[in-house]
Write a protein that binds this DNA or RNA. Structure first.
Lengths: 331, 331
DNA sequence: CTGAAAGCGCTTACAG
DNA sequence: CTGAAAGCGCTTACAG
């Protein structure tokens, strides 16, 4: 490919001027010279090498995103929203999929540090994520989940406990007398929040409610396998609230296989609220996370990062559809 | 961050030696010196700057992926498989989501060229993708869809026409006498292949079959909206074969809203066959593309790229489940 | 307004 | 086996 020197040569000027033209500064260039440079660049199909640029400029114009599972539509939507936000600022989003593997996560972190991304948005799969590689490199990080106190990373989240409570409370309001919580792995941070929110809703119910917590990985396959087993029992619950939509889809599938009708025999509530949830069979009631807002705030916060971590809590919305017993299939 | 010079200084040697140590070559380093360098690097938490490395080495150790819609699980699975293949070779996968927008696709192409990715895997949203930016930069490209004759890009695909025929033929074998093709946008290349495959299956059927082609965008929302309208009519088809699983999910949802039971009232066949298809309600019969194999071949082919485009056709598999009338929900 | 030169942090022939 | 130096392709003070 043509370099700045090729362009300078053809235009009869210096590489400094070529740079001034392509960056609109920091020095002025006469209209005449500018035109010559542009013409030469056009002719040679010149594109400044972003690597060389980043090396001397000290900024790569890229933000890294690390997600646990890019095949999960929640992260797909998140990636898209972040890419929109990043591109609007002239940055490129680099997406790393840790594939629910801690080693893979570590590899991606190293790759991002080595490539000197300017900032990072992260959804870690670890209980206590280690942000030190980024902080040592001076790369600001925003996590999209709660972080430990004193952590160097910022965070943007909804109030999971509160949202989980709202979801369960809604099922209570339908009058269901036995409700299950299909939670993530028992010891995960997220599971604790869903558990506490669920318990609060049950506590506040006027009537006694039979409850049970079941755990599965955050995947349709695992959730379906667990549900298939547990919904077949005579004492199966009347309703289930799930920690993620992915798990809810697994429950919907399992219920169908068992001949249980949703919501008639089993009410189901999801959590995350991606666009796909509206097209489930039946349409899935869920808690919607404000993905566009999360993305916009994350990118904005990273752009203004001054070293001090910031923690923001955004609102969620209850999306009531057929699966919990609200509305009918026709609407 | 610490640089190679910092390490050299602390180890009492030169940057050349630091480089030799970290690259295991091209020159030998005495064990003693190596140990000193490693200790200094450890102490300073040194990580070679990948930008500088790429600039002088002429290789970025990164492959770019451009997909139309990262929220579509097919591309999610593809991205994951490619990342596996790339990481196994020590490369980083950069994922760009063109969000079904031609301008966005062009932006990503420029960003990849500017960053000098070593190679590119691309699923374009354009009828006649323009690979010139890559070829001018000497970056080999493999498209995961058929490409124009004489194109500089390689391609790896299944035989879509043949696969579409097999899917439709399977519905014919069930004895359904009216079958619809829910295809992508009428003029797209893909649509032509599905159309021809579908027509071939119908032609070969021993009995007359009533057919209709309906078009929608490749999204659940659009497919559901179309299906809601068209499945409500009295002359609705007995079976539908779709150009993508996404569209099939939309049909499943619409059928449910209309009170039609699948497969009893309407048989449905998808196309793509991601892991999610097994957990649809009901489980979706579909054509499975060999994603892991596609990814592995793509990365392999790019690694050996010698300039001449290569075109490979891989096998597909018919995945028969409940939605077409095969098997029962219990299995 | 413009050019020659130093520097970003690496790699790698070239000498020793 | 090791070091001093040139070069990858940019940007930006520094002089003019």
């Amino acid at each position: 490919m043509a370099t700045g020197r090729d362009v300078a040569q053809l235009a009869g000027t210096s590489t400094a001027v070529v740079s001034y033209v392509f960056n609109n500064g920091p020095r002025n260039v006469s209209d005449e010279t500018r035109a010559k440079v542009l013409a030469a660049a056009e002719k040679l199909n010149y594109r400044p090498n972003a690597l060389a640029r980043a090396l001397s400029f000290g900024r790569t114009a890229s933000v890294g995103l690390i997600v646990p599972d890019i095949a999960n539509p929640f992260f797909g939507e998140l990636a898209r929203a972040l890419e929109d936000a990043a591109i609007a600022r002239g940055d490129l989003l680099l997406i790393g999929d840790s594939a629910l593997d801690e080693d893979r996560e570590a590899q991606i972190i190293s790759a991002f540090v080595d490539r000197r991304v300017d900032s990072v948005v992260m959804v870690s799969i670890r209980e206590h994520p280690d942000f030190s590689a980024f902080t040592q490199a001076g790369i600001p990080v925003v996590a999209l989940h709660p972080v430990d106190r004193g952590s160097a990373a910022s965070s943007i989240t909804i109030d999971y406990e509160e949202a989980a409570r709202a979801a369960a409370e809604h099922l209570v309001s339908h009058g269901y007398d036995s409700i299950a919580l299909l939670n993530g792995p028992y010891d995960s941070v997220g599971a604790g929040q869903h558990r506490r929110g669920f318990a609060a809703a049950v506590d506040r119910a006027g009537t006694p409610i039979r409850t049970i917590e079941v755990n599965s990985a955050t995947s349709r396959a695992d959730a379906a396998a667990r549900a298939l087993d547990w919904l077949a029992r005579p004492d199966r619950p009347r309703a289930v609230t799930c920690a993620t939509d992915e798990q809810a889809y697994g429950v919907l599938h399992a219920a169908h296989r068992l001949g249980l009708r949703v919501p008639h025999d089993l009410a189901v509530m999801g959590f995350d609220g991606t666009g796909h949830s509206a097209f489930a069979v039946p349409a899935l009631s869920t808690v919607r996370q404000p993905i566009p807002r999360i993305a916009e705030r994350a990118v904005g916060l990273l752009a203004e990062a001054d070293g001090d971590p910031v923690h923001e809590v955004l609102g969620y919305e209850l999306e009531l559809r057929e699966s919990c017993g609200c509305g009918d299939r026709g609407e």
